[in-house]
């Protein structure tokens, strides 16, 4: 019962922050709402017996990804951009309506088809379920191939990010003169 109440409260916060992110004019606020959302989701992970994932969620998502977002928003001053007009006037409500409709349909579909019974108790192993040791065990045996594959992903992303942002001094000057011309 306690869990259910906690869930409902957190779910409200979670949805609220998501909507907050969606509607914030200011990108910094949007990012903060998202951080809140991620932290709440981390709490859900704890409730679902995934402490390791919960911690990674906070470290990676809240601690690294969103900080980077924030960093870039501030660096480029993106929070200043007001969306002038944005979508055409009729498109906005249509998009919202479609989104809402989709949501209702999905929720109804799941609600009517899935069993409302709580998942079975994991018993004695509940304490160890989702522990780093267990995760590691599975990760380095069954999932070793994708794990190795992802190293290429990270390498490529690293190389890519460097290539995209590294400017040679000379080129920069040319660019600036070009921009002045325009």
């Amino acid at each position: 019962m306690v869990q259910l109440i906690v869930f409902l409260i957190l779910a409200a916060v979670c949805v609220g922050s998501a909507i907050g992110m969606l509607t914030s004019k200011n990108a910094v606020y949007a990012a903060l709402f998202l951080v809140l959302n991620f932290v709440v989701i981390a709490v859900f992970y704890l409730m679902l017996g995934a402490p390791f994932i919960a911690m990674v969620q906070i470290t990676v998502y809240a601690g690294a990804i969103m900080v980077l977002f924030m960093f870039v928003i501030m660096l480029v001053g993106a929070e200043m951009f007001q969306e002038a007009g944005g979508l055409n006037s009729w498109q906005r409500p249509v998009a919202l309506l479609m989104g809402f409709g989709l949501m209702v349909v999905t929720v109804l579909m799941i609600a009517t088809s899935a069993s409302p019974a709580p998942p079975r108790d994991l018993g004695v192993s509940a304490m160890e379920f989702g522990s780093p040791a267990q995760i590691g065990e599975v990760l380095y045996t069954n999932y070793i191939f994708p794990f190795e594959l992802i190293s290429f992903l990270l390498l490529a992303a690293m190389v890519g990010a460097v290539i995209l942002t590294k400017t040679e001094r000379k080129k920069r000057r040319v660019l600036r003169s070009l921009r002045n011309k325009n």
């Binding site: 259910l4 869930f7 949805v15 909507i19 409730m47 949501m103 999905t106 019974a117 709580p118 108790d121």
Partner: peptide
């Protein structure tokens, strides 16, 4: 009492559609 899985799934669906 544990929270039913479908509650979480519904929540996730809502978040997904918001996204």
């Amino acid at each position: 009492m544990l929270v039913p899985t479908s509650y979480f799934v519904i929540l996730s669906a809502v978040l997904f559609t918001i996204g």
